[in-house]
């Protein structure tokens, strides 16, 4: 069963490839023996799982075998620094969420790479959505974002939210503070899960996390999601309004994607994009990513090449405007 599906995907892929890359014979020459996807996070997490779903489907089409190599450390920066010095024949690529490349350079002095000059963007898998939710730590009367901001204004000594320091959650909170004029203090957590636990226990009134982490609690009624950071309503939660709809110009939707070391030829990048994008478009992958709370969203090389510097500049501006300093 698995092999037949693999073959089918392979056929679809080959067809797609021949459309994009030109003659069929050229593809046969291009197919690599071995390609490595480097992941900056330990096995088992969301990033690793996504990389493995894609790697499994790329095996036999993009390269004879595609393996995932975990090089965790320093919030994904060690893996990025490793890929920077990789061969440029398409056999080595980085799969990463955006923050080590677009947020960390503005926060840390010693960066082992230069995001805009050391990498070429290849393809994206999805764009993450964050959500602001309140729990038992906030009055029950709070049903909307407006209610929450009014309450926060009247109770400045309680107006806080949980999230990781220096993460996009943190910056979403800052953007909301700036846009509404209501001070919101960040309570720092090492990750999403402990902040959700404290919100459920009523120790903090609100929490900003990836939407997927609060959806089950919203379904149970223990947390109330007030707003999402996507441009349009998420397909995973069509009832939740976006910040933009509610009158706050806040769109935080960071990409996760594949990058190759700078100097990789454009045709290699195009071929990889075509292979990855067609994998991300298969129903099986859409379903499996959906289970992880991710909405599959491939992009072209040209679009990703536009998004990367834009997102980099966006965080640079937020961090500079708000005088956030880490090192």
């Amino acid at each position: 069963m698995g092999t037949r599906r693999g073959m089918l995907t392979g056929m679809v892929l080959a067809a797609t490839l021949s459309l994009v890359g030109g003659a069929g014979s050229a593809i046969a020459q291009d197919k690599l023996d071995l390609a490595t996807i480097v992941v900056g996070f330990p096995p088992g997490g969301g990033t690793d799982t996504t990389a493995r779903i894609v790697a499994e489907k790329l095996s036999g089409t993009y390269a004879d075998s595609v393996i995932v190599e975990n090089r965790p450390g320093a919030g994904g920066r060690i893996a990025a620094a490793y890929v920077k010095d990789c061969p440029t024949d398409g056999s080595c690529m980085l799969f990463t969420p955006a923050f080590p490349l677009i947020i960390h350079p503005h926060l840390y002095a010693d960066m082992p790479f230069d995001t805009l000059n050391d990498f070429v963007p290849v393809a994206t898998t999805h764009f993450g959505v964050l959500a602001l939710s309140v729990g038992p730590g906030a009055p029950e009367s709070i049903k909307t974002l407006e209610d929450f901001l009014n309450w926060a204004k009247e109770n400045p000594d309680q107006a806080s939210f949980g999230g990781p320091v220096g993460g996009s959650q943190h910056f979403t909170g800052i953007l909301l503070s700036n846009a509404s004029g209501v001070d919101l203090e960040l309570i720092g957590y090492p990750g999403g899960a402990p902040s959700v636990t404290d919100a459920l226990g009523g120790h903090i009134p609100a929490v900003i996390t990836p939407m997927a982490e609060v959806l089950p609690h919203a379904a149970e009624g223990t947390l109330r999601i007030l707003a999402a950071t996507s441009k349009e309503r998420s397909k995973l939660a069509p009832d939740i309004p976006t910040f933009t709809e509610l009158g706050y110009d806040i769109v935080v939707q960071d990409w996760s994607g594949f990058l190759m070391p700078a100097g990789t030829p454009a045709e290699v990048v195009e071929r990889a994009n075509a292979a990855i994008s067609s994998v991300v478009e298969t129903q099986d992958v859409i379903d499996r990513m959906g289970e992880l709370g991710m909405e599959a969203q491939p992009t072209s090389v040209a679009d990703f090449a536009k998004v990367l510097p834009e997102s980099y500049a966006k965080y640079g501006k937020i961090i500079e405007d708000n005088n956030i300093e880490v090192q």
Partner: peptide, 9 residues
């Protein structure tokens, strides 16, 4: 590593 966070939940 296996995506389970030990704790109250």
């Amino acid at each position: 590593i296996h995506g389970i966070v030990p704790g109250p939940q």
